[in-house]
């Protein structure tokens, strides 16, 4: 029960029964609510303020749709959104395709070197992208993959694998071994067991990884900036470049940012639960 874990001051009936006055309780309640309200307003006010400003002339004048019309009529915005969708979709697919089987292998199959390779893979989670980006750039430049869409996707997939494999392996480890054993007893091969027993059970973890990778790639600036061709950029790079050179009306830019945030917002609202699960997966061990 919820009420059982509440400190006494917030359970009026119990405290009152022990002789405290209801008035002081009400006041404490009000202070607590006000505190939460102030924090909530501080969190949301800048967002609302700027979105509202994008509907007003020069940010403070009368209502206008001018800035939104301007951003919607710009060809690059739609092309950039398309590029974001392409790169993000391909990277999510790539990461899942590679990480799900690997996570399964590390969790359920024992093979030579598994522990060492898994440890190295997991350790790679700690490496900041800036520490490797320079050799990465020069390596890919040598084989002609800088300034190309496949090269960019390759980098996103490579950098996404360590966390994904770690989360996938944690999840598969939590599934009982008896599932694997009973499959083997029934005469199913490893491939069959993976596809018809393990994969369906792993869907929650797969969704979590997909959402994390989606947000990471859609919202990335550095890698897209360095590896994509200049003429076909993602929306994040396009907006950042415009912010830098001040050629565009600042409210058109704000409208563009809000537009670019709509796809990740939808993903976020649909999968909020999975995101929280992914965030706290590591703590419970």
């Amino acid at each position: 029960m919820v009420s059982a874990r509440l400190p006494e001051v917030l359970q009026p009936e119990k405290a009152a029964a022990r002789g405290r006055t209801r008035i002081s309780l009400a006041r404490r309640h009000r202070v607590a609510s006000m505190t939460l309200l102030v924090i909530g307003v501080a969190l949301i006010y800048p967002l609302i303020d700027v979105v509202v400003a994008s509907f007003r002339m020069q940010g403070t004048g009368p209502f206008t749709l001018e800035y939104w019309r301007a951003v919607l009529q710009q060809v690059p915005v739609w092309r950039e959104l398309g590029m974001s969708a392409l790169v993000t979709g391909a990277s999510v697919a790539g990461v899942l395709l590679v990480s799900v089987p690997a996570g399964y292998a590390y969790a359920k199959l024992s093979f030579r070197g598994a522990n060492v390779i898994f440890a190295i893979t997991v350790a790679c989670m700690m490496i900041p992208v800036e520490s490797i980006i320079i050799p990465e750039y020069s390596n890919l430049a040598k084989i002609g993959l800088v300034g190309s869409v496949p090269g960019t996707i390759l980098v996103f997939v490579g950098l996404g694998i360590p966390l994904s494999v770690f989360l996938m392996a944690s999840y598969f480890k939590s599934l009982p071994d008896s599932l694997l054993e009973s499959g083997l007893v029934d005469g199913a091969g490893h491939t069959r067991i993976f596809f018809s027993i393990m994969l369906p059970l792993a869907i929650p973890a797969i969704v979590t990884i997909g959402v994390l990778e989606f947000l990471a790639v859609w919202n990335d600036l550095l890698i897209a900036l360095l590896f994509l061709p200049i003429q076909s950029q993602t929306i994040a790079v396009g907006l950042a470049a415009l912010q830098g050179n001040h050629v565009l009306n600042t409210y058109v830019l704000v409208a563009g940012s809000v537009l670019s945030a709509i796809p990740p917002m939808i993903v976020y609202m649909l999968f909020q639960r999975h995101l929280v699960a992914g965030l706290t997966m590591g703590v419970h061990r």
């Binding site: 947000l215 919202n219 940012s257």
Partner: peptide, 13 residues
């Protein structure tokens, strides 16, 4: 909510 927003969008805002 801000988790869904990119640094670019947050920076512009």
């Amino acid at each position: 909510l801000p988790v869904a927003l990119s640094w670019v969008v947050i920076g512009i805002i």
